[in-house]
Simulated scan of single mutants.
Amino acid sequence: MRLTVLGGSGAWPTPERACGGFLLEHDGFTVLIDPGYGTMPLVPDRVDAVLVSHGHPDHCADLNPLLRARVLGDREFPPLPVHAPPGALDAVLALDKPRMLAGGYVQHDIEPGRTREVGPFRMEAWSLPHHVPNAGLRLTADGRAFAYTGDTGPAPELVELARDADILLAEATYVGRVPEEDAPYLSTAVQAGRTAAAAGVGRLVLTHLWPGTSPEDAEAAARRHFGGAIG
């Protein structure tokens, strides 16, 4: 199981970093997770399925150019399986008339508590607190486990999601404190470190850093609570 980070900026891309986008590969199968702003140019022809945690555009906007490239380009592609919470992709899919992208994708709802097979992966989902419905995702294959929080506030389910995962990809918009109005819906590097420690994960990867945040500061904050590998 191999994870490639395409970007990790929260809210909007910067000249240095695309928004969240991740490739998870196993046994010749590649899943694109959260195609946020700036991620599509890196992956148009090497994706077998797409998973989207929630409908905010910094997590799914580049699904539109990805589908355009696959439908309108010279090369013929099979319909792309796209998994997301119900309604999460309505806005991005409405950017084009339905007939333009017809046949380019097959949409599947992510349902918390229901297990689904995505290529070689077994996918489980948890409903986690955010401003819009957000699915925490856990993918397992051949005894390896990958967990991803999407964007979420504090929740006891996070430890269950991440339990003994080889990699925990955790939202850490802020370093140590979330502004009060967003505290139920977003997390910090400190909280990510605590979750990783409680869940016994092998490696912690921080994502969704607010633009301008020092990755070194975020890593140092998480390291105060988690003694394993970070990054």
Rank of each mutant, 00 (worst) to 15 (best):
A18E: 09
G176W: 01
D58M: 04
G73K: 15
E181W: 09
P81R: 12
E160P: 09
I33Y: 02
M1N: 00
D48F: 05
Y105A: 09
V118M: 11
A61Y: 03
D166K: 15
D74V: 13
H54L: 13
G202C: 03
D142A: 13
G7K: 15
P86Q: 05
W210C: 00
T213K: 00
D151Q: 03
L63K: 02
A198M: 05
L139K: 09
P98H: 03
I230Q: 09
P112V: 13
L67H: 03
R203T: 14
R2N: 11
D74G: 08
L6E: 01
A196G: 05
L204H: 05
R75L: 11
G103C: 00
H225T: 06
P44T: 06
G10V: 05
A183Q: 15
A221V: 13
L23T: 02
P154M: 03
H108E: 10
P211C: 08
T195M: 13
V205S: 07
L80F: 09
R203S: 01
P179N: 14
G38Y: 11
G104H: 07
A69M: 03
H59I: 01
P44S: 08
R2F: 03
A198N: 06
P112K: 03
A147E: 13
D96T: 06
A218Y: 13
G38E: 09
